[in-house]
């Protein structure tokens, strides 16, 4: 079983915590016709990290780097979650039983399902584990 296809390249941007940074990033994506499927902002004292799943990660990376942004790729997994009480528990408990740590995560609700984006310390193990439990993962080709 190949885990590769479920490892999704997320782009992360180092950003100072000041007005205009998110707008600058979003404008760049618009100009390059890059669609942002999901994103989150993590904030620490004085700076932040913007994380996003986009449909054209390489183009976004190139454009944002050329604008002077500090950009990095990180592998995350996108998990389909039942949009009902217990949906998150089902996934979180499986991971915790296997001793896999969630470094960060963000989620959004779609029409039928909710999607949970996970950054874990053992990506391959997490993919294998969740697939074994018949939990639906979103493959990278569905995104880009």
């Amino acid at each position: 079983m190949s885990c590769e296809q479920y490892m999704i390249r997320q782009i992360s941007l180092f950003s100072e915590n000041k007005p205009g940074r998110l707008a600058a990033m979003a404008k760049a994506c618009q100009e390059e016709d890059v669609n942002i499927l999901a994103f989150s902002i993590a904030e620490a004292d004085g700076f932040g990290v913007i994380r996003a799943l986009v449909d054209k990660p390489d183009i976004a990376y190139e454009k944002l780097t050329s604008l002077g942004f500090n950009v990095a790729f990180t592998h995350v997994i996108a998990v389909e979650m039942k949009d009902e009480p217990g949906g998150l528990f089902e996934i979180a408990s499986k991971l915790s039983e296997a001793g896999i740590n969630i470094e960060y995560s963000y989620a959004f609700s779609g029409k039928k399902k909710a999607i949970l984006i996970l950054r874990v310390d053992q990506v391959e193990e997490a993919v294998r584990l969740l697939l074994q439990h018949k939990i639906n993962l979103i493959a990278s080709e569905a995104i880009y």
Binding site: A42, A44, V49, E103, R119
Partner: peptide, 8 residues
């Protein structure tokens, strides 16, 4: 830059 706040 590594994407992790804790690294920063």
């Amino acid at each position: 830059f590594s994407d992790k706040i804790s690294d920063l």
